[in-house]
Amino acid sequence: MHASASAAFVLHSRAYKESSALVDFLTPQGRLRAVLRNARGKSGSLARPFIPLDIELRGRGELKTVGHLESAGIPNLLAGEMLFSGLYLNELLIRLLPAEDPHPGLFEHYALTLQALAIGRPLEPLLRAFEWRLLGELGYGFALDTDLHGQAVAVDGLYRLQPDAGLEPVGQLQPGLFHGADLLALAAADWAAPGALAAAKRLMRQALAPHLGGRPLVSRELFMNLKESPRD
């Protein structure tokens, strides 16, 4: 039987048959789905999100079997907003990343993002940077400092996003537009610039929406409920 070893993180798992689990893994070789047998045992305790793993998968079909699974590092302990942010990244990957499509650079970026979340780095820049990397890896990226005609973005210009083409210059103010100054700040990853974080959040939502197929993200709704819930 064909077997392959890899670094991995669990994106999602659910009960499967009597005592097994169906697990989606992120690996440098892409998103892989496999059956974990005896999921209530020691292996099942490791089959949770945000734990660096070494796994061995067996089988040649799309649905493989976990032959071996062990911890490969310190778990990324996430709580509160950081936990929901990690679940959001996982849901994006499950929804958008094709199965068995290798993205080793994205895997490394994901691992570093989890580490940054675990130590409490500022949340919004981490999420926006990951969304941007994911779009680029999937071939949906676009320039932030030039428009779709190849002209440099003007500091005082106004632009709308055409998700399949890029930034389109617009002559007058309309809802949903982006200021050139904010776009140039994003191009330089200048998160301290006034308006940069808010613009980045709107831009990434507009860029991701066509690829999510109109279905809401469960993790985003949970995150919003967390932020809106009254504090003791």
Rank of each mutant, 00 (worst) to 15 (best):
L186W: 08
L186A: 03
L186E: 03
A187L: 06
A187D: 05
A187P: 02
A188W: 01
A188I: 03
A189P: 00
A189F: 04
A189H: 10
D190N: 15
D190L: 07
D190T: 04
D190W: 08
D190K: 02
W191I: 09
A192E: 15
A192C: 06
A192Y: 01
A192K: 09
A193G: 00
A193V: 03
P194W: 14
P194Y: 14
P194R: 10
G195R: 08
G195A: 12
G195M: 11
A196M: 09
A196E: 08
A196N: 08
L197G: 02
A198L: 11
A199F: 09
A199T: 15
A199Y: 03
A199E: 06
A200R: 02
A200S: 15
A200M: 08
K201S: 11
R202Q: 14
R202G: 10
R202L: 13
L203F: 09
L203T: 05
L203R: 01
M204R: 01
M204F: 03
M204I: 04
R205S: 13
R205Q: 15
R205L: 11
Q206T: 13
Q206V: 12
Q206P: 00
A207Y: 02
A207G: 02
A207C: 00
L208M: 09
L208E: 03
L208G: 01
A209N: 00
A209K: 00
A209W: 00
P210V: 11
H211M: 03
H211A: 07
H211S: 00
L212V: 09
L212C: 06
G213F: 08
G213W: 07
G213S: 04
G213D: 04
G214F: 10
G214M: 12
